[in-house]
Each structure stands twice: as structure tokens, then as C-alpha cells.
């Protein structure tokens, strides 16, 4: 562990590699977390199958890639497929738990997460897999730093998608309805907004965002049916750290988590990767609690 640390000090250029990789992977984390922030903020559903939707998007891309369709073209397919999937899941499950207490939605989506992970395990098999884009890998600094072109493409795609969603939320009628519902669902209903449709659309949109994130992750990293829970926890870490009303915070926290994982993976070893994510979750929650405790009583 100390050896790895001193290595970083001796060869500062390795930091660039870690930071770059953190940036690329963090962008996808931020994307999935933004989806969670959306459903959490608008409909108060803690979606524990967030990560499994990400993985599903990844598997769609991988399957298409095996059939000769380039992963980048898998992106729109994953988005549309997951949008429809989210729409159905809302009708079947979410619409029945949305008005209930918070643990209900948490547990119902946790059940769904188990179903999804196991189904993917049956359908796609338990192997760790990736979607090969066939792009070149460039080297910088005399081969000390490698950058796969697909990672740059993925970052650009993530940025484009995020921009589209943000513009959509600001400009479109549905986006405005979503934001109105998030602020006060009762008032929105009184003003003639069909909140049920808004919720349905929001959940489907979240699923689509997850699908996009999964597609990007399958191109630049690896997927496996049971990786979902870790992605879910990542999204929770990011949203809890940033707060769900804070888009800029979500992006920042996403990159932060990307860096943190890269560094802990390098310094402590790859087997600590999951421990890092979970550990960060606990730390973030504890810090939040200390912040609240500083007040005599949390103001509601």
C-alpha cells in the first residue's frame, strides 16, 4: 500500500492517468446519480434498482455489439428500451408504492433489483463482459498514460445527454410540469397537472438515463449481472452527498467518486474497490448526520 503511494509521489504523471480515468468513469456515475436525484426529488422514491437498470442498459449494448451493431448505435436503443421498461415498471409496481411510506418503495425496488439481477444472470450469464468499440488507444507521456478514444467519446456523449436532459427540464412543458410537481404535488394537481403521468414520465426518464449510463459503462468498463447493487450504492452516495436539488453538486460528486475509486483501487488494490464505495456511503451518511446534529434539532 505504501509502495503504491510512494510510486504516485515518484511518478506524478501516474496521477494524470488516475484523474483522467476518474473523470471518464465519474461522468457515467454522475449521469446515473442524476436520474436517481430526479425520481428521489420529484416522486420521493428511493430507487434501489437504479444500478440494475444501468447494468440492463449495458447488456443491451453488449448484446447488440455481439450482433454486429456498434456500441455507439446501441446508445439510442438502450435509451428507448429502458424508457419503455421504466414506463412498464411504473405501471406495475411504482404507482402502487408512491403514496406509501418510504420503506415500502425502498423495499419494493430492492425486490425488483433482486429480480432484475437474477434474470440478467439467467439470460446473459454470469461472465464479466464489455462492449468492444474497436477504437484506438492513445498513449501520452512516453506511454505512461493511456487514453482509450472511446473513453473520450463516452465523456462527450455523457455531457451531450446531460445537456439535453437539462434543457428539456428547463424548456419543455413536461419538464416544467415535472419541476412543478417536485415543488408541490398537491398544488400541481390543483393547477390541472396530471401528476400520475408526470411521475410515470419521470420514472421512465430516469430509466432511460440509467440505460444511457449503462451503455457508456459497457463501452469503457465492464459489466456483470451482479454489479448493479454497487452502481445503486454509488448513485446513493452521490445524491446523498450532493442533495437532490443540486445538479452541479451531483456532477461534482460524481467526478469525486470516480477519482476516489481510482485512487483507492491504485493505492489499496482492486479488491478494495467495492469496500471504498460502501465505505464512502457510510462516511457520507455520518457526515450528514453530524451536520444535522449541529443544529439542536433538524429543521424540517
Amino acid at each position: 500500500m505504501l509502495d503504491n503511494l510512494s510510486l504516485l509521489a515518484q511518478a506524478p504523471v501516474l496521477n494524470i492517468q488516475l484523474l483522467l480515468d476518474g473523470l471518464f468513469i465519474g461522468a457515467t456515475f454522475a449521469l446515473a446519480a442524476y436520474g436517481l436525484a430526479l425520481v428521489w426529488g420529484v416522486m420521493n422514491v428511493k430507487n434501489l434498482c437504479q444500478g440494475d437498470m444501468v447494468i440492463l442498459g449495458g447488456f443491451i449494448t453488449v448484446t447488440l455489439a455481439h450482433n454486429g451493431i456498434h456500441p455507439i448505435f446501441g446508445l439510442p436503443v438502450a435509451i428507448v428500451a429502458l424508457f419503455v421498461y421504466g414506463w412498464i415498471v411504473y405501471r406495475l409496481i411504482i404507482c402502487r408504492v408512491i403514496e406509501r411510506d418510504l420503506f415500502t418503495s425502498l423495499l419494493a425496488t430492492f425486490g425488483l433489483a433482486i429480480v432484475m439481477a437474477q434474470s440478467m444472470n439467467l439470460i446473459f450469464g454470469p461472465e464479466v463482459t464489455t462492449a468492444d468499440s474497436g477504437f484506438e488507444t492513445r498513449t501520452l507521456f512516453d506511454g505512461l498514460v493511456t487514453v482509450a478514444e472511446i473513453k473520450v467519446v463516452s465523456l462527450l456523449l455523457a455531457a451531450t445527454l446531460a445537456t439535453i436532459v437539462i434543457v428539456f427540464m428547463k424548456r419543455s412543458r413536461m419538464g416544467q410540469a415535472i419541476r412543478a410537481t417536485a415543488q408541490d404535488a398537491r398544488a400541481a394537481r390543483v393547477m390541472g397537472i396530471d401528476t400520475d403521468r408526470v411521475y410515470q414520465f419521470t420514472y421512465a426518464l430516469n430509466a432511460a438515463i440509467c440505460g444511457a449510463a449503462g451503455c457508456l459503462i459497457s463501452m469503457i468498463w465492464t459489466i456483470q449481472p451482479f454489479f448493479g447493487i454497487t452502481h445503486s450504492i454509488r448513485a446513493f452516495v452521490i445524491v446523498t452527498a450532493a442533495g437532490f436539488g443540486n445538479l452541479f453538486g451531483v456532477i461534482l460528486a460524481g467526478f469525486g467518486l470516480g477519482f476516489a475509486e481510482q485512487y483507492s483501487g491504485f493505492v489499496l488494490g482492486a479488491q478494495f474497490q467495492q469496500a471504498t464505495v460502501v465505505g464512502l456511503l457510510v462516511i457520507v451518511l455520518v457526515v450528514r448526520q453530524i451536520q444535522q446534529a449541529r443544529h439542536r434539532r433538524a429543521v424540517i
Binding site: 428511493k46 418510504l102 420503506f103 425502498l106 450504492i233 446513493f236 446523498t240 478494495f272 467495492q274 469496500a275 460502501v278 465505505g279 456511503l281 457510510v282 451518511l285 450528514r288 448526520q289 453530524i290 444535522q292 446534529a293
Partner: peptide, 21 residues
């Protein structure tokens, strides 16, 4: 100190973290 869903997620995190550690 965590309430509602934070409590559920927090305890889940503690259990997963201990397994990992």
C-alpha cells in the same frame, strides 16, 4: 441519527462494508 430511508440505506451500507472489510 439517520431517519427513514437514510437509516435503511445506512444500515445496509454498514453491513456491506463490514463484509468487504
Amino acid at each position: 441519527g439517520l431517519r427513514g430511508p437514510y437509516f435503511a440505506i445506512g444500515t445496509l451500507g454498514v453491513a456491506l462494508a463490514s463484509a468487504e472489510l
